[in-house]
């Protein structure tokens, strides 16, 4: 087990404090003391489909290490594991491989009191107590700073192939495919990521009128919105939409509408309970 004592000491018990990984997803909050989570893979258990690592471990290092076991972890590429989990935004494989928040099985984090706290458990199936892990994913370090984690892995498929079709109906493609990993649409072209046995991938692509291509389109980075997946056909501007999910990558900036006041009140109650003085990543409102 990774020793989190030094990390906990660095977080301490009082004063504003912020955490950063590789800085690829926003970096630290200004005007605070900055801490870094431990890095390094603790162990890989391929037959349990789990891996344990420090939150500061680069995602790409983890993915490379798992490739030796013909497995992978469904986290967005780049940055650190802790950063990917804390931001909680899935990549375009969310449709088929599930959201980032389902990847985390156990976390040990340093609380606002400077204590090491364990959430979740080491097995893939576990309903022992309240699901604190779900809160930590996407909390952007406002509830606690991730120290080390156990995340679930999945087997690499025999074949993984991006395909595309110009001027296709995204919902017709989506309806035809059996559990595609991803379906993207930019208002004109449809892309799909198909995984599995080679013969199945070819058959699926043909059935949906798709032909193999090099990869997905570059995602516009102006803004990322979540919309009801049925509404993507009424989008305007320059975008790539995740069909069946409703996450839309826009070239244009977009500001999220104010959240429902009752949801916000509940989120703030959670924050207040876990960090009453607001010392962890101050200024970030979840």
């Amino acid at each position: 087990m990774i020793d989190l004592g030094e990390f906990a000491d660095a977080v301490g018990r009082d004063g504003p404090v912020t955490i950063t990984g590789a800085g690829t997803r926003g970096g630290p909050v200004g005007g605070c003391s900055v801490v870094h989570a431990p890095a390094g893979i603790e162990w890989v258990q391929p037959d349990e489909m789990i891996v344990s690592c420090g939150a500061g471990t680069p995602v790409d290092e983890l993915v490379a290490a798992l490739r030796e076991h013909r497995q992978t972890v469904v986290l967005p590429a780049g940055g650190t594991v802790g950063g990917a989990l804390s931001v909680g935004r899935s990549d375009v494989r969310r449709l088929g491989l599930g959201p980032v928040r389902d990847v985390l099985l156990q976390a040990r984090y340093v609380s606002a009191l400077g204590e090491v706290v364990k959430a979740g458990g080491p097995t893939v199936k576990n309903v022992s107590g309240f699901d604190l892990c779900r809160l930590l994913v996407g909390a952007r370090g406002t509830l606690g700073f991730l120290g080390d984690v156990i995340v679930r892995t999945r087997p690499l498929p025999p074949v993984s192939q991006w395909c595309s079709a110009p001027a296709a109906d995204p919902f017709a493609v989506f309806r035809t495919l059996y559990r595609p990993v991803s379906v993207l649409w930019d208002g004109h072209t449809v892309w799909a990521l198909l995984e599995g046995h080679g013969a199945d991938v070819s058959q699926q692509a043909a059935a949906a009128g798709l032909t193999a291509c090099d990869g997905p389109p570059a995602l516009p980075s102006g803004s990322r919105r979540a919309v009801a997946p049925t509404t993507i056909t009424s989008l305007t501007g320059t975008f790539v939409a995740e069909v069946g999910v409703g996450v839309v990558h826009h070239a244009e900036p977009w500001s999220a509408p104010a959240r429902d006041g009752r949801v916000l009140a509940l989120a703030r109650a959670v924050k207040h309970e876990l960090d009453p003085t607001g010392r962890l990543n101050p200024g970030i409102d979840v």
Binding site: G88, P99, F130, D131, A228, P229, V245, V263, A267, V286
Partner: peptide, 25 residues
């Protein structure tokens, strides 16, 4: 006594995953 919707048709809105916290409570 308040009624609040956690999560919904829109996937992965930024903010705490209160939906995930509620499941299994």
């Amino acid at each position: 006594g308040s009624v609040v919707q956690l999560g919904g048709d829109e996937a992965e809105v930024d903010g705490l995953d209160l939906r995930g916290a509620f499941v299994g409570s």
